[in-house]
Nucleic acid binder design. Sequence first.
DNA 1: ACAAAAGTGTTATTATTACACCCATGA
DNA 2: TCATGGGTGTAATAATAACACTTTTGT
Lengths: 227, 227
Amino acid sequence: MPKRFPSVAVTVDLVVLTVRDDRLQALTIRRGEAPYKGQWALPGGFLRPDEDLPAAAVRELHEETGVSSDRVHLEQLGSYGAPDRDPRMRTVTVAYIALAADLPAPTAGTDAADARWWPVDELLGGAALAFDHATILRDGVERARSKLEYTPLAAAFCPAEFTVSELRHVYEVVWGTTLDPRNFHRKVTKTDGFLAPTGETTTRDGGRPAQLYRTGRAVQLHPPLMR
Amino acid sequence: MPKRFPSVAVTVDLVVLTVRDDRLQALTIRRGEAPYKGQWALPGGFLRPDEDLPAAAVRELHEETGVSSDRVHLEQLGSYGAPDRDPRMRTVTVAYIALAADLPAPTAGTDAADARWWPVDELLGGAALAFDHATILRDGVERARSKLEYTPLAAAFCPAEFTVSELRHVYEVVWGTTLDPRNFHRKVTKTDGFLAPTGETTTRDGGRPAQLYRTGRAVQLHPPLMR
DNA sequence: ACAAAAGTGTTATTATTACACCCATGA
DNA sequence: TCATGGGTGTAATAATAACACTTTTGT
């Protein structure tokens, strides 16, 4: 077939979210080149010729954070393709969200002058992200927030073994609410398949030792948790 | 910037769903050219050089169905970009779902030898769709099914004014369940913002005249309807 | 002993389910 | 008058929300 179609550059961008210092934070890269030189942007890069979209997301995540995809929840968020979204050329980006437990302090990637975590409320209130990345971040945060309601995804923000109150802390930080510790405990421990007890306990939060749990086999919460 | 990125063809594909003859049906186009010549495929086409993604979806919808985007719910489903998904070239497709009230019998579009509605269960059980369109269709149907739970989207499958039982029929067909007419009636009429009464009544379903409603201003159902 | 966090019990309220029953029309 | 669907009432069950109270650790 002759080339009678417009050529477009396809990129993959990542909304990498974690809970750090009691805030929901996103990973940003400071751009080393024009356009938007010196501004913060979401990590991402070009799709390679023989690479599927999820593979590109895993690769970018590894390049930017040094993290392998184990213990990170990666899912496609959506695609953004306004004709003027990149002044250099026509691009369509496929955005992914990555939810992870507190990651190591980021090391600057190849293209990046610097990399750091930012609380998402600071990024969304005023701070100017490059390209349409504020929109992508906003959509990614909203996706994460609503998925906590009806999936056991909050555990992606926790280490492999965690306590009920660590899990509750994730909900409180991501949603910006407070939850009744007692009702929350009942809800998550009684919802079948949400949590699998390890049998171990920990006192790392102080007070009475707490049961440690791993994520269960459930993929949907029924009924959902309400914000 | 020099072209040091791989060039990819970006297409937009549509999962156009409607409720027809008591079945959930999807619009398909018979391919007139190789590859997959003669097989059924989802409608779609190349993204144009100066076109945003939603605009391309609206344009393709109009070209394939003659329908303008009024009274059709269009939303992005996701992107699919396996390197071998099209044998001719590297493509990434951005899929949209379009939910519409019973549309006119389709007229064949420019590229298409033929176009028709197929019940989705027939398309997903055995019938061979071109490319990765079976996956896209399956994802689109699942998206539509779950969105009926927590949004007032079922009304997109109804004409501008509709009765409660017409709305219930949509749920029953899309979910493949039966619902108690009395409890359903209470639920949808009592959920604030779901339905706006027009004041008119109709007897088009026989029996006692039913109130006609338009869609309300709610965008979320709280609490959700359960399958 | 006391602070701190884990976890259980209890009650009021709200939502869902199942189903009896009445209403308003056309044939 | 009868069939057909529209619509309300009600009681049993289930889930949520609010909060008193007990448990088990560290200091």
